[in-house]
Design a protein around this nucleic acid. Structure first.
Lengths: 218, 218
DNA sequence: GGAATTTAATGCGAAATGGTACAAAAAAGT
DNA sequence: ACTTTTTTGTACCATTTCGCATTAAATTCC
């Protein structure tokens, strides 16, 4: 029941608040790394195929601690999904805002997406797609998060293309929303294919083809 | 435990082989409609959230009968998936082969896809996407089927675009494979979004935009 | 009508599941 | 030293899960 911290907490607070001197017995786990482990499991097996025993083993926390720290299985799933989204967002937001030319920005976005989708050996893929496909979508709160994820990505791409239009990188006649949907579709198709373990080379080829159509053949 | 046959078996043998006079007690279920019900359940809840009790209730067959007819849960899932694919294929194959102009053919293909993805009220979506996202992809046989589904769709689109090129509907410089991947990506993105209950109108708008890019704005 | 055969129906059982009660442990406050 | 507070660890409970063994029913063949 001990947590080996090989993977650093992605949202590690660099400014440790100087040990707030909590009152009772100290925690034997670090919430950040525990949540990361839970996320890995949920991502591999989905919501209902992941048992609390599995989660307990993976996080190094026993069941009651898990419960106390994150709530029940559903809440833990939601928190895992939020964490996943936060990580993905922080990995991409700088690139979306960068000054680089359009094609370069898009290339970097897709490179990061492929990193996320293909890391590790067992089926990974995209948690949003996993969640959408799960029975958990019948939960309105979870479905809301998924929808939010879709529009967030669509918007990011849309503003990206809007800026490119202003810069003259795209003809003035182009519809930024349409291109954004195509760009999201490309994200989605590689996400699903990655889940089925299509090799990264093929995914990169699909991305390249999409970029040729979107930005104009290089 | 009785099967109400409101939904006709999609693969109904029109030529009933004149009652082959089976030997023992007659079946109380019709395998085709039972498989259809199982398919509906798996599609709604995924593999592991669907219990044999659920399946038994939905099919009107008790557990041992289910077992005898289709094998264990995994086999039933696989057969459901095969059935889904067969239905989808037969719904689309004629359109892929039709003589209609490119854009018309594509419009019909996507219309059928949206029919499949949005029918019913509870989350439906695409079984291939569901399966890919499920923990079942770690099963090599199932993963194989999913991959097969991807290439089948890619190929169908690719030959579609190849023919369009020969007909002069597309510039000779277009890469049929690249467009095929884009067309598949559009299928995938609407499949996922449909699962999250994005209204059909929005899905149709996404499809229209993609068609404008693929075939040239109308 | 009776044997053979195929299916239905009941229900059992071992394991797993999500969740919790409760006592022991480890720290800080007094 | 002793109380208070927080967390851990064990064990448990009720329910669900998958799979099967067994018996009862319905039909054909002889």
């Amino acid at each position: 029941m001990v947590q080996k911290s090989n993977k650093p907490p992605s949202a590690a607070k660099m400014d440790a608040p100087a040990a707030p001197k909590r009152r009772g017995r100290p925690r034997a786990y670090e919430p950040d790394v525990a949540l990361g482990r839970a996320l890995d499991l949920f991502r591999r097996d989905g919501f209902s195929a992941t048992s609390l025993d599995d989660l307990s083993a993976a996080t190094g926390m026993n069941r009651p601690s898990l419960y106390g720290a994150f709530g029940d299985k559903r809440e833990l799933y939601i928190k895992s999904y939020q964490r996943y989204r936060d990580d993905a967002r922080t990995a991409m937001v700088d690139i979306f805002r960068s000054e680089a030319p359009l094609r370069e920005r898009l290339k970097r976005i897709y490179a990061i997406a492929l990193d996320i989708y293909t890391e590790g050996e067992s089926p990974r893929g995209c948690f949003t797609v996993m969640t959408a496909a799960s029975e958990a979508v019948s939960d309105p709160a979870i479905r809301g998060m998924v929808l939010e994820g879709f529009v967030e990505l669509d918007k990011a791409f849309a503003t990206c293309f809007g800026i490119a239009k202003e810069r003259g990188e795209l003809p003035a006649s182009t519809d930024a929303t349409v291109l954004a949907h195509l760009a999201s579709a490309t994200i989605h198709t590689v996400a699903i294919r990655a889940r089925a373990q299509v090799p990264r080379k093929e995914l990169e080829a699909i991305v390249k083809g999409a970029l040729d159509v979107i930005c104009g053949a290089k």
